[in-house]
Design a protein around this nucleic acid. Structure first.
Length: 172
DNA sequence: GTATCGATTAGC
DNA sequence: CTAATCGATACA
């Protein structure tokens, strides 16, 4: 399966009240304090996994949350993982437009993928560069948080149809 | 040990 | 708008 990253949010580490790292280096957040480029997977609301990549050098927390993807390859497999019918025509946005959704589409769990090296193609899950360069980017406040909700740390590809949120889903 | 809540989603 | 649902965290 392959998908393009179209929406992310930055979490700044121990000084960011909205970041899990604000609670310090615990069993849950240890990956955030490890070397960069590794997967931080957490379980939320008793229902969903979400995927981050650690960004700062070892010892310093800081991460990027993947909030939405544009499916490119393996759409059938993603639909199966999301338990959505592929016929007659699936709404592709339902596959990966949201942090919990994209994790489910890729079968990401904390047990399997937490700590995974996202910089290595040898990993089952990794980030690559296919040469695509987005056009205009937009910065908006982060979604779904209660603390530090005003900081514009959400980055999206302007106008991309696969962005998360009911607003984008309701369009067309 | 118990109480509370959350970087969400689906359904009414 | 609310329910679902459970691990991490705060507190006694």
């Amino acid at each position: 399966m392959v998908a393009r990253i179209v929406e992310v949010e930055a979490y700044l580490g121990e000084n960011d009240p909205a970041a899990h790292a604000a609670a310090g280096n615990t069993a849950r957040t240890s990956v955030l304090f490890g070397p960069p480029g590794h997967a931080y997977v957490y379980f939320i609301y008793g229902n969903h996994y979400c995927l981050n990549v650690s960004c700062e050098r070892e010892g310093k927390a800081g991460s990027v949350l993947f909030r939405a993807l544009e499916p490119l390859l393996g759409i059938e497999e993603m639909a199966r993982a999301r338990d959505l019918a592929l016929q007659p025509l699936p709404d592709l946005r339902k596959l990966t437009s949201g942090p919990g959704r994209l994790a489910e589409a890729f079968g990401i769990t904390r047990i399997r993928d937490n700590g995974c090296d996202l910089t290595s193609p040898a990993s089952g899950l990794w980030i690559g560069d296919d040469g695509f360069r987005p056009g205009k980017l937009e910065m908006t406040p982060r979604i779904g948080i209660r603390k530090a909700a005003d900081r514009p740390l959400r980055y999206t590809i302007a106008g991309n149809p696969f962005l998360s949120g009911k607003k984008t889903l309701a369009r067309d």
